[in-house]
């Protein structure tokens, strides 16, 4: 009996780690939420006036700083960047989506590391202090690569690693949300990326939110036709997932059929007829960009000071 309860709870914990982020995705963010954070919408605050190249540099700096410093600097950057989401168009909604995305990444990453990280690495990360066991898995869990025990240190370690990803993901989405594809095209061409490559990239950038939009439509149509109508209500989120997977191939066909119209419209505007393109509005470096640069310099300075003061990367990192 006791064994049964242990097994039951272990599997419950296992499915919590897997299902909870999916539940956040389906309930709190939804396909429209993903569409919102991967699509450009016109507005006028500082991010929208910034040169896309500067935004890319900002992303790289945030990535480097999060990788070089102690976890709470990454956490601090995450909070600051998330707060700047409030200045975007429809800021509260984007802030909420950004918040849930961060939560999802944090729980997902913590769960991806906590049960698997070998004790040797945990010992190294926590300087040899004794590991506190929270839960003992049934012995066959080791087949899945689980360590015998779930430890407090494992959870902390997983959480600290997640702080390395959250800030840079949020910063990278800012680029997608606040620059038009043609702005990105212009600044990448300035760096010397061939026009064929940037064109393909811009098509990809524009396609990502459209995939969510069409999958959403496809799921709604399937619900109208009765998918999961007899299932109990609490299973409904999983029917969204089933519908989304069913919708993938039709969505691909629908999108790819539209590709010909895009190609014709690009060709009629003399795409690649000449080696170089000219632009009606050249990408310039303005006041906002200079401000952003000074922020970048400041962040780098703080990082150097932090590393010198011993707040460098405190934990070993694999994967």
């Amino acid at each position: 009996m006791n064994l049964l309860i242990i097994n039951l709870i272990s599997w419950l914990i296992f499915f919590f780690g897997a299902a909870f982020p999916v539940l956040i995705m389906l309930k709190a963010i939804g396909l429209t939420g993903f569409m919102k954070v991967t699509r450009f919408e016109s507005y006028h605050t500082f991010y929208y006036r910034m040169n896309p190249a500067v935004k890319i540099i900002l992303g790289i700096v945030v990535m480097a700083v999060a990788a070089l410093t102690i976890w709470w600097i990454g956490a601090l950057m995450t909070v600051v960047i998330l707060l700047t989401y409030l200045t975007l168009k429809d800021g509260k909604r984007k802030f909420a989506t950004g918040f849930f995305l961060t939560m999802m990444t944090t729980i997902g990453t913590t769960w991806a590391f906590a049960p698997y990280t070998p004790y040797a690495i945990l010992n190294e990360a926590f300087h040899g202090s004794a590991l506190t066991s929270l839960w003992v898995w049934p012995s066959y869990f080791t087949v899945m690569g689980y360590q015998p025990d779930l430890t407090v240190q494992g959870l902390i370690y997983g959480f600290q690693i997640s702080m390395r990803f959250t800030a840079v993901s949020l910063m990278s989405l800012v680029l997608v949300m606040t620059s038009t594809p043609s702005q990105v095209l212009r600044s990448l061409n300035k760096v010397g990326v061939p026009i064929s490559i940037t064109f393909s990239l811009v098509i990809a950038m524009r396609t990502v939110p459209r995939i969510f939009e069409y999958i959403d439509t496809s799921v709604k149509i399937q619900f109208m036709r009765g998918l999961g109508s007899r299932a109990p209500r609490f299973l409904r989120p999983f029917y969204v997932l089933v519908g989304a997977i069913n919708g993938i191939v039709p969505v691909i066909v629908f999108l790819v059929r539209g590709a010909k119209d895009t190609a014709i419209s690009a060709d009629t505007r003399a795409f690649r007829a000449y080696q170089k393109r000219t632009y009606m509005r050249p990408a310039t470096i303005g006041r906002v960009d200079r401000m952003a640069f000074s922020i970048i310099v400041l962040v780098i300075l703080i990082t150097v000071i932090a590393v010198l003061m011993g707040f460098g990367r405190g934990i070993p990192y694999n994967g």
């Binding site: 995705m25 393909s200 990809a204 396609t207």
Partner: peptide, 25 residues
């Protein structure tokens, strides 16, 4: 051709949506 480049872009977008959103979960 231009159409090829569009197909390539769309394929990359699908791979990204799968890798980071649907497949990831």
């Amino acid at each position: 051709t231009t159409l090829d480049l569009i197909y390539i872009g769309m394929g990359a977008a699908f791979a990204v949506v799968w890798e980071f959103y649907i497949g990831a979960f």
